[in-house]
Design a protein around this nucleic acid. Structure first.
Lengths: 116, 116
DNA sequence: TAGGGTACTTACCTATGAGTAAGAATAGGA
DNA sequence: TCCTATTCTTACTCATAGGTAAGTACCCTA
């Protein structure tokens, strides 16, 4: 709650860098946007929903999101296995931040001529 | 101005991915935070301000930021050379977006126990 | 004529991310 | 007995980002 707002250029860059590292990886954003809104999906459902992803990559990215505290993994002891993935509260809170970035990107001046 | 707000998980992920690609690169954030606030710095000043960066890397990242329309480069025809770098208007607008990410990162639950 | 200052450029090497393809564990059902 | 379904795991390869070290261009000054 006590926000530590005393950033130097270096600490701010480090902070944002650390945050963006949570999102690094070719498939993480695709996974996140499948789960935003409180959706819960199985491994196989994510695999179908995300075009072109391999099982290896899907697991790898999910595992990273999980240890980072963004995604929660729930295993149901069944055969064949059933595993569900959903966002944590903190993961859901990423939505407005990504929206800010999306908004920024939309405002990009289209042409090259950049004056002032 | 006319924001195209009709995103599917895929298009949203693509949009954010495209935006984040502007920030990819080990030194881009360091450069950005040196220039936020309308600051104008010479090549050699950036080199001194950013600890550990090499000339090759500094130029490479600056060039990418320049072609992406985030940084503006001004050459003064002198000897020895003088080149100044500053953010474009659009580049400055990145600040609130990065702040949203920083805020999100600050809210991360510290411990492992992630309930509900 | 030798050196200094500024802003790059080039060559080369290595670590890492990501891709493909295949294997593995499990128990119920044909 | 073998197949199926589901969720991973493992081995191998390749492209790329980034690192180091050195070189280039320019003109002024001593």
């Amino acid at each position: 709650m006590s926000k530590n707002r005393s950033y130097t250029p270096k600490t701010a860059a480090d902070g944002v860098g650390a945050a963006l590292r949570f999102l690094e990886g070719r498939w993480k954003l695709s996974i996140l946007f499948q789960l935003f809104g409180g959706k819960t999906l199985r491994f196989s459902e994510l695999e179908k929903a995300i075009d072109g992803i391999s099982q290896k990559m899907l697991i790898q990215q999910l595992r990273q999101l999980e240890v980072d505290g963004i995604v929660r993994r729930t295993v149901y002891p069944q055969v064949p296995p059933k595993v569900e993935y959903e966002l944590t509260d903190w993961g859901q809170e990423l939505c407005p931040a990504l929206d800010a970035i999306l908004t920024w990107a939309e405002q990009r001046p289209s042409g090259k001529p950049e004056k002032s």
